[in-house]
Structures are given as C-alpha cells and as structure tokens.
Design a protein around this nucleic acid. Structure first.
Lengths: 239, 239
DNA sequence: CCATACGGTGACAAAATTTGTCACCGATTG
DNA sequence: CAATCGGTGACAAATTTTGTCACCGTATGG
C-alpha cells in the first residue's frame, strides 16, 4: 500500500474510532508497528495533533480541536480551483451548488462531461501572483461582479470579448481581444488577452474595464501565455 | 529531488517555455533523459496532454487546450476546503475576497493566525457524504443562506445554538445544542449536534431548522463525531 | 513490587521502488 | 545519408521504505 494512502487510512481510522492502539492501526492498514509509528511521526510533522497515552487502555488519538482536515494541502492547483469556483459562484450566485464529492476525481465522474471541460478551461485561465507573507488576505482586491458573466462566457465559449478600457491617462478606448487568462496580483486583477490586430499579448487592469460583452459568432484558440517566472511577476503591467 | 517536485518542475518549465526537448528538461530538473521520459509518461497518465515531435526542432509541449491545472487533485481535504470556503463566502457575501495564494501554506502565513484557526475549525465541521457517480452535481442541494451567519458563529465561537426544529411529523420544537459538524448527503444537509441534555448526538435536517441563534455566554468543546464509515453513511437519519 | 500493556527510538538488514545506463527502434529534417 | 529527437526494454545501481529486533520509559492492575 502506498504511503500516502496509508496516512489517509490512519487518519480516517483515528477520526472514526476516536482512539486506537498502534498495533490495531498496524493490522488495520496492513503494515508493521514500526511503520505506523513512523507514519504517526510524519503526520505530526504535517501538522496533525495526535495525542498518545502509555499503559493499559492507552493508544493514539487525533485531537478533535486541531487541524485534521487541512494538513497536507499545498498545491497551486488547489488555490486556482478555489478562486475559480468562487468566481463561478459569484457570477452565477448559486450558493452551495456546483460542488460535490470528496475528490475532484469523483466530482468529474458526477459532472456532465461538458461541465468538466468548462471547469478545466476556467481553471486554466486563472493565475495568482505572489503575496507577501505580511499582506492580509482581505487585501486580495475585488472586481465588479457585474463584469463576470461576460468574462465567464468569453473564457468558456472561447469567444472574443469587447469592452471599454480607460488607460492610465484616463483616455477611453474600445478593445476587442481574445481573453486568455486572468492574473491576480493582489490587490490588482488583470485580464491577459491576445490582441489579434497587434499580434501580441496585452494586460488590462480589470478595474478599468467597462461594459464587457462577447462578440457573437467569433471564436479563438487558447495560446501559451508567456509567464516570466513560476508565479508570473510581470515586469510591465499597467499601474 | 522528489518525484513529485520534479513533475511540478517539468510542468512549470513546459508551461513557461511552451516547448522543450527531453534533454533540456533533464538538465533543467537534474535527472536523466530516461527519467524525464518516465515522468512524462506519468504526467500523461495523470491527464496532462503532452504533444511530442521527433526530429530536428522537435520536443515535447503541453497542450494549451488541455487540463494542466487540475490534474493530480484528489484529496478529501480539497473538497472540504471548497465547500467551506463556499459556505463562508455565501455567508458573508464577499465575492472574491478571503482567498490568496497558491497554497494553503502561504495562505496561512498571510492570514492572521486567528483566521487560520477559524478556517481550520470550520473545515473540521464539514463532512460530505457519498455521491453516486450518476448523480448530477447540481443536485447537491442548498440551504437557506439566511441560516448561515448564526451557524458560522456557533461553529467558530463554539457557542450553543438555539433553533426551532420541525420534525418529520410536522411538530415544532425548540432545541439548544452544541453544533459539532455539518454533514452533506446530497441533496440533504444535516447538522450533527450534541444534545447535552440527552447526552447523545442528534442529526437535524438543515431545511427543517428555523430561526437559529447563538446562545450568548455559552461555550462547549469539540467532540469526536462518530462516523460509521469513511464517508459517513448514517443508518438512521431523519427523512 | 511485579507483570503487562503501551508509546517511542535506534540500528540494521531486507524489500521495494526509483533512477541511470545502454542498446536500439522509428520518425523527421536538412 | 547523417543527425536529431521521442520512445521502449532490460538490467544493474542507487535510494527509499519497510520490517525485525532490542530496548527504554511510563502507566495500570494485582
């Protein structure tokens, strides 16, 4: 059995039974006493608070006050998923719907396949920039929810987006672009779009965009969005 | 270098450079050509669509149309996080806020520590039941958002909750309990609460709860909620 | 006090997995 | 044709994980 699966199994067993001896856990997961003890050490390293008692009636026990559910989450993708789900929810104002299962695998089985594709496409459009450790999370910034339906459609249907854009000098222009990605560099949000007339990528501050609408009957293909670094510290973004 | 980290590195490199030869990738991640080829195979198994071309100017390339961001997500915890964030968002109606970074680790560094504790506590209160593969995700069911503020407070502050409950026969009673968990068995939502007068756990259908309010000046401790199975197939729930 | 049950640690070899090397295939390009 | 490049199989080397064993400390019941 895989080490990760075994960790999961141990946590589940502890969560279910409340307390168990190492021996019991070992036979439960099909590993040796030593291995289970090593696993418990690893889980503690990961942030699980596991109490233990020696002697008769002793055993190990998950602290019901403590983490349990959150340890071991650390991937970029999780956050992208979070933001996108949040975005979709905000756009559709369907509280609590659109979620199902204990893992994306099962989510995908349960979803109609076209919705899986939509979800994936939307995820691909979201990039989140660096956040300084001191920065409060509530500084993430927001964008006008009224903008979202048009954006969502444009991203998912791969249709051109037309909108008014007010540049740094206050001059208002009309744009028609291929929306390729959204970039979040708290507290600013950017639309990363391919300008097909200029044949290059452009970055638009979301808060300067007005009256977005999809251009009916158009369509485009996804492109490789060039990111300078892992987490996209763009050198020249509109300020 | 860890295998998982290497996979990430390969994906990042491909996403950044668009296309690369296996040799380049190998020197980039500090592994042999063979290993990188094996990794690419593994990534393909995980759902990444990776094109390749032989001959001069060839190389491998991530399909920009395809998954990229979502592969490799499959933990219970992710979903718990999703639902809870959704719940908190619905409760507070703060679209797009409250999220930050590419990993929970960084999120936690960015968050004031008391908010981390809140998030963890909330996560611990959420359990999602089995969903049949055929079930559409939109059948998840909803609960009245108006209920949420009181619930959130009760969970986070560990205060007693008082509410009116209409049982299966339609009889209305008033309850005062310790909210210990929320259980989602689509399309029904349950509150799992400790009834301290009866000294036992009770399950309340969320849609039969009315006028929830926290009982000021009270507090309780978290308990081990007994779940029969991994994903809580309760035998006797109110229907 | 003793025996027993239990968590915890170190050492070390056995087992499993991952990795590198090499040899070789097929496709593409100039 | 030669060079470049992805892809595969085989097998040994390297690394990681696991099991065994010996032993410590503590709690509990008799």
């Amino acid at each position: 059995m895989n080490i990760r699966l075994r960790h999961d199994a141990i946590v589940r067993t502890l969560r279910r039974s409340g307390t168990a001896t190492v021996e019991e856990l070992a036979s439960q997961v099909g590993a040796s006493r030593r291995t289970v003890l090593r696993d418990i050490g690893a889980l503690r390293d990961q942030g699980f608070v596991i109490h233990s008692e020696c002697g008769r009636g002793g055993g190990v026990q998950l602290d019901p006050q403590s983490v349990q559910t959150t340890a071991r989450l650390s991937v970029t993708e999780v956050f992208a998923l979070l933001v996108s789900v949040a975005a979709m929810r905000a756009a559709r104002s369907l509280p609590f719907s659109g979620l199902a299962d204990e893992g994306l695998a099962k989510i995908e089985k349960a979803l109609p396949s076209d919705k899986v594709r939509d979800l994936r496409r939307f995820l691909d459009c979201l990039h989140v920039g660096q956040l300084s450790p001191k920065q409060d999370i509530s500084d993430m910034g927001t964008i006008d929810p009224a903008l979202l339906p048009a954006f969502e459609t444009a991203f998912l249907q791969l249709q051109f987006l037309r909108f008014g854009y007010r540049d740094a000098k206050g001059a208002e222009t009309s744009r028609e672009v291929e929306p390729q990605a959204m970039l979040i560099l708290p507290p600013l949000w950017y639309l990363v779009a391919w300008d097909s007339s200029r044949e290059e990528f452009r970055h638009f501050r979301m808060d300067r965009i007005s009256r977005p609408e999809i251009v009916e009957g158009t369509s485009f293909r996804r492109r490789h969005v060039p990111f300078e670094d892992d987490v996209c510290p763009f050198s020249e973004l509109p300020r």
